[in-house]
Write a protein that binds this DNA or RNA. Structure first.
Lengths: 210, 210
DNA sequence: CTTAAAAGTAACTAACTGGTGCGTTACCAG
DNA sequence: CTGGTAACGCACCAGTTAGTTACTTTTAAG
């Protein structure tokens, strides 16, 4: 209602601060581990405001989660992959997915938390369902164009491919701590990250190339 | 000290019941979400016993986690993959990893919880480091044999390959709830599971074959 | 200026939660 | 039989925690 003038009282700004703080806390400690008081303090708001705007801790988590998903889906659309040749489009998607996880580490922990709770907090979101459908269609279109021009082989399921593209980046990053201990290497050095990305691009290319 | 005679008081059995209950609860709700009282009740033990045997909630989590990792590493060794031709050995590993995740769903959530806490609970475990080293060597040996016999290409890093084999199964299963909503399909039907396993075997084979 | 609605705050509560003090009971060596 | 010890259990903290109540302050319309 009012973003034109700076106000000492600004509902939208307060909401936004609460959401940002909640995102950070939920990502850091999970839904169960995050504390409402801590979120309120970090947001420079009062706990009462959280309940006023979002109803409950779980509802707040739900909003945070939906926003996080809509954000990555929106960023994917911005790539305009249908303007690129199939090979470049797919490689761009792999690079983007990897970089998005790196730039937005909260995303991964939020998704983990959502799945620990059996996806319960995402069930109602039609906005997300629509965005996801468009995303799958985008990848399907890339695959189709690649098959048509002879660079991709026939019969690759876009959903399975999507899952794999996410998986090979996501797993590496979410399990970097235990992975670092098990494999006795630092997963997060620049060379290690670069090597992993190259490996992942190679994996996806070998999977789809004719 | 006494496993020969059945006792009304059996420290080992009590410990084992506590560990089993803890594994189940930690897997279900995470380290933060699990309740010590609930674990005690499920174990048909007293909360006091948990602190007597394990010291603290975090120490208990640490033991549960280490046991879970040692269990999968031990099962991998039982496969005796060095007795199989390289191709079969690798495919067996991919199938085994997938089936292990399916049969032991707690493993995945425990690992997620461990990583949410930055791997802190695994840091001290030399037993696990040793087991992991042996595991990597096993995969390296398979790759080397495959290269030697000409079926595998040169230069595939066994650690990257391991991570990818785990990733493509792990991600699918850990994110099956949000995935089911996003992609509008049930990830856990028999046909869906079969299709995913086939896709994963294909992915790995295309990655290593000469 | 007035006023009502919206924004914001602090103090509180009822239910938990990890952890412990302390007493009891079964087991086994001698 | 008996005394010491390990196994066990009750009842209770002290500190949290999600959620609420009752209240004040700011905003903006008329």
């Amino acid at each position: 209602m009012a973003e034109t003038k700076p106000r000492t009282r600004d509902a939208d700004a307060t909401k936004a601060r609460i959401l940002a703080a909640a995102k950070s806390e939920f990502a850091r400690l999970g839904l169960g581990g995050a504390r409402v008081d801590e979120i309120a303090e970090k947001a420079q708001a009062n706990k009462r405001m959280i309940y006023h705007y979002f109803g409950s801790k779980e509802d707040l988590f739900q909003v945070v989660l939906e926003e996080a998903y809509l954000d990555i889906r929106s960023a994917e659309q911005d790539l305009e992959l249908d303007h690129l040749p199939p090979r470049e489009a797919l490689e761009t998607l792999v690079r983007f997915t990897w970089q998005y996880y790196l730039d937005n580490p909260e995303f991964i922990t939020l998704v983990n938390s959502a799945n620990l709770h059996r996806g319960r907090h995402l069930e109602g979101s039609d906005r997300l369902r629509t965005a996801s459908r468009r995303f799958v269609n985008m990848v399907r279109a890339i695959l189709d164009r690649g098959v048509e021009s002879g660079v991709f082989r026939v019969g690759v399921d876009p959903v399975q491919l999507n899952i794999t593209i996410a998986a090979i980046g996501y797993y590496y990053l979410t399990n970097r701590y235990t992975g670092g201990i098990l494999f006795e290497r630092d997963f997060m050095t620049q060379p290690a990250l670069k090597e992993r990305l190259a490996f992942n691009i190679d994996t996806v290319m070998r999977l789809v190339l004719a």
